[in-house]
Design a binder for these strands. Structure first.
Lengths: 244, 244
DNA sequence: CAAAATTCATTTGTCAGACATTTAAAAGTC
DNA sequence: GACTTTTAAATGTCTGACAAATGAATTTTG
């Protein structure tokens, strides 16, 4: 693990990268303790604050965790799917909002990925997944539900569908695509009729999943995708008209 | 933006979260300049090193960038898909290796997602994407290619397929699933016959994509998925036998 | 006057040393 | 032996300082 003090990049960034490489390559194993800050600053010939900045960078990526006290220190963290979820969602959300990704593009990606999960979910979903979906559908029928709460429930429904595939890798990758859509969905105002139609499709999807009919699920998801896109277009047009 | 000095969590973590929230909520816009470190340490009533640790955390997530000199400072960064790619790949790779995700699970996720891209790619892939795929196929036929190089080429081939869908969100989400598989694939030793079969399937996929036959692409991907899984199983069994 | 060179102020990057706080293990006490 | 106290080690935080980069203002120069 070496750094170049003459480089124009920050020393803390270089040190973070050196340690990161050691973790990725397996030189440092899960739960292994890193040298203490004092030892690291000695090794890299930099001050302790600089080492600390490097360690905080790694902590921000959940690559390490720190513990105070005797026999404390920085330890290589076993990144769990749970840790990675929120980061994935945050990044995906910002990617969409900062790069002005169109509703259509995001929606297309989301449903393409979700449909990829459908066959697996139709085969493996547990009673628990179905119960979650039914509960969310019920919530969606409640009058007085705000648009935001409706969208949140929609996300929960679809997450249950994805989780039903019983593949943590899929769930993780999908988390970003599904949850990042929420801010975009929140821009839509759902009429009572819109909600009715969506609930109907959700019910059909849940029924098909329960019956293990993959093709049905896929078809309903495709319909839902098209419907959502149309809804968004109508809203945009109405706004454009109101503005012009 | 406020923090709780009495909380048991690190001040730098709290400050980072406060600024992160401001970015996500839109209180801080892209390219907007944050207060200087001195001003921030004044605002949060902490020392400058603490503020710096917080800023480094945000920099590690590409949420901000810093610039030295007069009129320098920390600026909200527009996260680009290019920035997010490597982070996504790093996290996905570590998730697989650290959580002992089985080859089957990772492979299933990868091909499920890839097949989701197939119809779009069949419709939209450019000549450029096809050229990349053909070039990689050619490389895969070269004798003397190491297993590692073969895997790398395989990844490039599949990335071209995914990029062919022309949806940056899909490409981003898939980057993790496709590239994170590489270390797992590297554990396999490919015989000449294995490579021949894979090249054959790759060629069929490229042909079908060129002809715009989505169903064909999907079928060949399914075959490739099954073949890869079988290959991996054979390797595992052979090793288990050699060991026992 | 205009252009080049210089100075200057601002801001991040780095350093040194210190103290506070937490924590587990060692030492002491009953 | 079980409990309490002490101690040492480690991270968390602070203060103050200097280095380096950078843009703007100022001065010098042709």
């Amino acid at each position: 693990m070496k750094i170049d003090p003459k480089s124009r990049t920050d020393l803390s960034a270089q040190i973070a990268q050196a340690i990161r490489d050691a973790i990725i390559s397996g030189d440092l194993n899960v739960d292994e303790r890193l040298p203490s800050e004092a030892e690291l600053s000695d090794h890299f010939q930099v001050s302790r604050p600089t080492v600390r900045e490097a360690l905080k960078r790694l902590a921000a990526q959940s690559l390490i965790r720190t513990q105070r006290g005797a026999s404390g220190g920085a330890f290589v963290n076993r990144i769990s799917f749970e840790d990675a979820y929120p980061q994935q969602v945050t990044t995906s959300t910002l990617l969409l909002s900062m790069n002005a990704v169109s509703f259509d593009t995001a929606c297309e990606a989301r449903y393409a990925l979700e449909r990829a999960c459908a066959p697996l979910s139709a085969e493996r979903r547990t009673a628990d997944h179905l119960a979650t979906m039914r509960a969310e559908i019920f919530r969606q029928t409640q009058p007085g539900l705000t648009d935001e709460a409706f969208c949140a429930s929609d996300v929960s429904f679809h997450r249950a569908l994805v989780d039903g595939a019983g593949n943590p890798v899929l769930s993780y990758q999908l988390a970003g695509a599904v949850e990042a859509m929420q801010p975009l969905m929140n821009m839509i105002t759902f009429t009572a009729r819109d909600r009715e139609r969506i609930v109907e499709l959700h019910t059909q999807i849940a029924d098909a999943l329960e019956a293990g009919q993959a093709a049905e699920v896929d078809a309903h998801l495709a319909t839902l995708c098209a419907y959502t896109t149309t809804l968004a277009h109508d809203v945009m047009e109405a706004r454009a008209k109101a503005k012009g």
